[in-house]
Write a protein that binds this DNA or RNA. Structure first.
Ligand SMILES: NC(=O)c1ccc[n+]([C@@H]2O[C@H](COP(=O)([O-])OP(=O)(O)OC[C@H]3O[C@@H](n4cnc5c(N)ncnc54)[C@H](O)[C@@H]3O)[C@@H](O)[C@H]2O)c1
Ligand SMILES: NC(=O)c1ccc[n+]([C@@H]2O[C@H](COP(=O)([O-])OP(=O)(O)OC[C@H]3O[C@@H](n4cnc5c(N)ncnc54)[C@H](O)[C@@H]3O)[C@@H](O)[C@H]2O)c1
Lengths: 210, 210
DNA sequence: TTCTAATTGTGAAATTTACCACAATGAGGT
DNA sequence: ACCTCATTGTGGTAAATTTCACAATTAGAA
């Protein structure tokens, strides 16, 4: 679609998007790369370069139109449409995500949550999502046109569960399991490794002179 | 402490650590950079280079002793000691973290969890942690020698809560709030931005030909 | 209309990070 | 003791990413 985009760019675009959304709520009409940079501790040139991979969104002398840029980033990130999401594993983290407004607001619709545990199946989360049987997963994925699976199962079953999810046609995974999973390369996996952040913090704290 | 360490290295060390722990459970005595690399989809030379910043842990011809390397990485990451952690905000994500075994196993002790909500204060999570009043936070931090705070509060109060936490002497924050927070530079903040991972996945999915 | 101030878009330089290639080393066999 | 094989540690190079610097453009004032 576009030429070669440095990998960190997509992530930063999502950060810009967050700020733009906030600013548009506050009624700002335009924003400059330098004011954005100040808010995010990034160099203005970084921001301009990032945006320039996708086209010229700004106006010289004025900056960027907040709404327009937001819309453009939505397109680039693919969140101008809604994604259908299934949460797999209704444990602590799965249930936390199930009602995370941040996701819903940004284009991800939680279409279901499944588990194996007899005790959990049938229970309702926040009065609008009912935990369903993982045995129904294939049907759920096909009927509700699930595109993204969120893996929140115990480590030792993660690969097995992933394999079936892929078999049912899912092409995108957000993986909360602290384990490197194997998948065909047309299946995108995005790892979220919370405990790595704690260790990275620890490292910085004991090496804080540098 | 050490010379100039590339920033991605600490994060990778934490990944190596995870695998080493798993391997040591499986009874492996040694591991080579190439087998580690295969498991993690990393070039062996990357792994050797990463480790070499901190010294020569391996033995030529044989590889690395799993236990020794694990211990060495623990030291480097600063998780050879236990860190005292306070969770701030007993909402969905705060409560999920409160009993995440991954953290406890890797050197982080959850010493408390606080909230403002009258309804939540006094309630017990998994029978061993009781939600306390955020008004007691200063006392808790000082008496229990809290070193790391985990921010799980709503976006609009995050900066205010952070400011007080810092005032009470905390030097490390794991921040789950999707917002760039300001802090003196001797306070380390590690951001965990779950919704960015979803957007990054979306981006990859709509641009998957590249 | 012309000038001024602000700000973008972008080649090119600088910096950071990853990768390669190979000498050095240790283990195990003969 | 010597050879062979596997594998590390690392200097040097390549690749990726960030930052700089400045011409180009726009808005608004004089
Ligand atoms: N709790 C956290 O804060 C946290 C943070 C980061 C990562 N994680 C990771 O997320 C995963 C889940 O953690 P958790 O704390 O929610 O654990 P949990 O034990 O609370 O939840 C796991 C859930 O998965 C269900 N499950 C088991 N096998 C299944 C299967 N085959 N199909 C569907 N569901 C199945 C279980 O019944 C359970 O409800 C773990 O791998 C954990 O390491 C957890
Ligand atoms: N739920 C998720 O999966 C998720 C994922 C990533 C990030 N987050 C972020 O984490 C934060 C919390 O999210 P949540 O889903 O747990 O929300 P939540 O509403 O369930 O929890 C927030 C908690 O903070 C408490 N609180 C409010 N003001 C406080 C204060 N001054 N001091 C102490 N506690 C206070 C509230 O009483 C509530 O219990 C939000 O910023 C959210 O964006 C949530």
């Amino acid at each position: 679609m576009f030429e070669k985009i440095p990998k960190p760019v997509a992530r930063r675009l999502a950060i810009y998007y967050r700020v733009l959304k906030e600013q548009s709520k506050n009624g700002a009409e335009t924003i400059s790369s330098s004011s954005l940079g100040r808010m995010l501790d990034l160099k203005p040139s970084q921001i301009r370069k990032d945006l320039s991979y996708f086209g010229g969104f700004g106006k010289r002398g004025t900056g960027y139109n907040v709404i327009d840029l937001m819309k453009s980033i939505e397109k680039i990130l693919g969140i101008d449409k809604r994604w259908n999401v299934l949460i797999i594993g209704a444990g602590k983290i799965g249930r936390a995500l199930a009602n995370y407004p941040g996701l819903i607001q940004d284009g991800f619709t939680i279409k279901g949550i499944v588990d194996v545990s007899e005790k959990k199946i049938g229970k309702t989360i926040d009065e609008h999502l009912t935990i369903e049987d993982v045995a129904e997963m294939e049907k759920i994925i096909r009927e509700r046109k699930i595109e993204i699976g969120v893996l929140c199962v115990p480590s030792d079953v993660a690969q097995k569960v992933l394999n079936s999810v892929i078999q049912y046609g899912i092409k995108g995974i957000v993986n909360f399991v602290p384990k490197r999973l194997k998948a065909p390369k047309d299946v995108m996996i995005e790892d979220v490794q919370i405990s790595l952040s704690f260790k990275a913090l620890s490292f910085r704290m004991v090496n804080s002179e540098r």
